[in-house]
């Protein structure tokens, strides 16, 4: 942690917060006993920021992402997305918020194998009951470099292409926050660069907020800020760091 000696809770950088985590804890109970995955995390994700969350295995980074996206309920603490408190929303309200404001990209591309690329990308719009405009879908496909592949099915595409479909699908609803969990985990380095470039572009050009969980220092280096998580607590951050700096910080944490 050479770059910073921060005190948390961390004060937000400039700009209004898109996503606000306030003293989030998460405890999993099982027969084997209780496990504290998160032990009080407070952080403001500024609008238009690209933040990577890193940490050793079991540090709680995936849990953090799931709580932030309302996929899982924190044991205590609140999550506020664009001024809306997730706590207290029912399943349907949460779903509506999710489809209006959030986009998801995961390591497993999570496409529907039965649908064409076009239909996969248009699906979130159909789910809201809107008829997707052909131009919108085509434009998003062009944005991710998949023009001409609209009629293919996921199985006919490479891993990188499938991930780009997933990004197109997340872009189509113009969400304010992008959640990405190891988006390049299954891709080679060249393809990874393209995918990360797309995420970068989303923040730079459209002002979308990206929260990305990763264990890859190269991927994390695309973010403006890298948050380090250890044992369910924020352990530090690096701004505009190189992969080497990030890797050094990670090996510090794992020691």
């Amino acid at each position: 942690m050479t770059a910073t000696a921060p005190t948390y809770p961390y004060t937000a950088p400039a700009g209004p917060p898109a996503l606000l985590l306030d003293s989030i804890t998460k405890t999993y109970r099982s027969k084997a006993g209780a496990v504290d995955a998160l032990r009080g995390v407070t952080y403001h994700f500024a609008r238009g920021s690209f933040t990577a969350v890193m940490g050793p295995s079991g540090s709680g980074k995936s849990t953090l992402l799931q709580c932030a996206a309302g996929l899982d309920h924190p044991t205590t603490g609140t999550v506020v997305l664009n001024g809306v408190t997730l706590l207290g929303l029912n399943e349907v309200e949460l779903t509506k918020l999710r489809r209006a404001e959030m986009g998801f990209v995961f390591q497993a591309y999570n496409l529907l194998p039965s649908l064409t690329v076009y239909d996969n990308v248009a699906l979130p719009l159909r789910l809201t009951g809107r008829r997707p405009a052909r131009n919108d879908v085509q434009r998003v496909l062009e944005q991710v470099g998949l023009e001409g592949k609209a009629k293919r099915r996921p199985a006919e595409l490479s891993g990188g292409q499938q991930q780009r479909v997933a990004i197109a699908r997340a872009l189509i609803t113009r969400p304010s926050v992008f959640f990405a969990d190891e988006p390049t985990g299954a891709l080679d380095s060249g393809t990874s660069r393209q995918i990360l470039g797309l995420l970068r572009e989303a923040t730079d050009r459209v002002g979308q907020t990206v929260v990305m969980v990763t264990h890859d220092p190269v991927a994390a280096a695309y973010a403006e800020r890298v948050l380090f998580l250890s044992d369910g607590l924020l352990a530090g951050h690096l701004d505009r760091a190189t992969p080497a700096q990030i890797a050094a910080a990670m090996s510090d944490l794992e020691r």
């Binding site: 399943e91 209006a100 998801f104 529907l112 979130p124 789910l127 809201t128 609803t173």
Partner: peptide, 15 residues
């Protein structure tokens, strides 16, 4: 998993 995915990208339980 498929239903989970649909829920993730915005399908309500009713849908």
């Amino acid at each position: 998993r498929e239903y989970g995915l649909l829920r993730l990208i915005g399908a309500t339980p009713r849908q």
